[in-house]
């Protein structure tokens, strides 16, 4: 509730993004009849889980005026390590999942130490961590990819958190419920707890917050720990959807998440942003990811188009600031 709200408790920006989602959905549906089907909806959502989780987490460093570039290669490495443990070391799936999340947490802590305790610029620090995590997974797992258990396997039960297939074969994307629950929880954290409040304060005016006696080092580190934790969760989500983890991949995933957050209203300079906005922004990104191929846009044009949308989002941000 740090910023003015319009009707229904939604900020102006969020309403605008909802509008964009509606327009895009309608546009794609018109241009591609196969787009407006239930399976496509499920596909859009499916693609969104790991990106949503990344975005929920990275919103925190972004609001402090920083960034976490390590979440993309990170989530792949964490999933690689978790999968390796499951497939090659025969640990129970639950342990593999915990390992994936746990390592994400640790790397988040590492990032927090670099940025908040040692004062390194977040862009540089997390870029270095990105390079580290890119090699970390393959280094620990012998260099090859690994496939998490599939839906039919017994050990694949964890996938049901994200997708539930009924006896008749209908696919229910239950993952969206988990996402909504997480959005509600993290919104609460951002708006109504000291963790969230001080994260925004640090992004707004770090020195003033320090002078007010707040332990900014703690809360600043915490922002990155949250980001790492959600990167770990994203790794699990990715594994649940795509099964095979290819080592060394993931570079660029973070751009989807950060891009989504920015479209959703997070300011690149800090102090502004909502969880719900980031969530909506990710939906825009995923809509484009799935929709553009469907309307026949060939691969390279998809990327160009996505880039343009992101530039537009940042421009709106900059123009608003000048007012």
């Amino acid at each position: 509730m740090a910023n003015k709200k319009a009707f229904g408790g939604l900020k102006g920006r969020e309403i605008m993004v909802l509008g964009i989602i509606a327009i895009m959905a309608i546009l794609f549906s018109i241009l591609s009849p196969t787009f407006r089907t239930y399976p496509t909806l499920v596909s859009v959502l499916d693609n969104s889980y790991y990106i949503t989780l990344m975005a929920l987490g990275v919103t925190f460093p972004l609001i402090t005026g920083g960034v976490d570039l390590s979440i993309g290669t990170g989530l792949v490495s964490y999933a690689l390590i978790g999968g390796y443990l499951i497939v090659h070391q025969n640990v129970p799936v639950a342990v593999g999942i915990l390992a994936c999340i746990g390592i994400g947490l640790l790397i988040g802590l590492f990032n927090g130490a670099l940025v908040a305790l040692m004062d390194l610029p977040p862009f540089l620090a997390t870029l270095c961590t990105c390079m580290i995590t890119r090699g970390l997974g393959p280094a620990l797992c012998g260099g090859f990819g690994v496939s998490w258990p599939s839906a039919i396997a017994e050990a694949g039960a964890f996938r049901k958190i994200f997708k539930f297939t009924t006896a008749t074969g209908t696919v229910i994307p239950v993952g969206i419920i988990s996402m909504i629950v997480l959005v509600i929880i993290m919104s609460f954290v951002l708006d109504h707890t000291r963790v969230g409040r001080y994260t925004i304060a640090i992004g707004s005016n770090k020195e003033a917050t320090r002078l007010a006696g707040v332990n900014i080092k703690f809360y600043h580190v915490l922002a990155y720990v949250i980001s790492g934790f959600f990167a770990g969760l994203a790794g699990v989500a990715y594994a649940a959807t795509y099964a095979t983890i290819y080592p060394g991949s993931g570079a660029g995933f973070e751009l989807d998440a950060i891009g989504g957050a920015i479209v959703g209203g997070v300011s690149a300079t800090g102090g502004v942003g909502t969880i719900f906005g980031s969530f909506l922004g990710v939906i825009v990104i995923c809509l484009m990811k799935v929709g553009l191929p469907f309307i026949g846009l060939q691969a390279n044009w998809q990327q160009i188009f996505t880039g343009i949308v992101l530039i537009a989002a940042v421009l709106i941000d900059v123009v608003k600031k000048k007012e």
Partner: peptide, 27 residues
């Protein structure tokens, strides 16, 4: 001081990724 630390970290990162590349050839 901070610059030195950054340099050390960057070198460490490079060394680690090189190590990873090296052991990417699992064989």
């Amino acid at each position: 001081m901070k610059k030195k630390v950054l340099a050390v970290l960057l070198s460490a990162a490079m060394v680690l990724s090189l190590a990873a590349c090296g052991s990417n050839g699992g064989g």
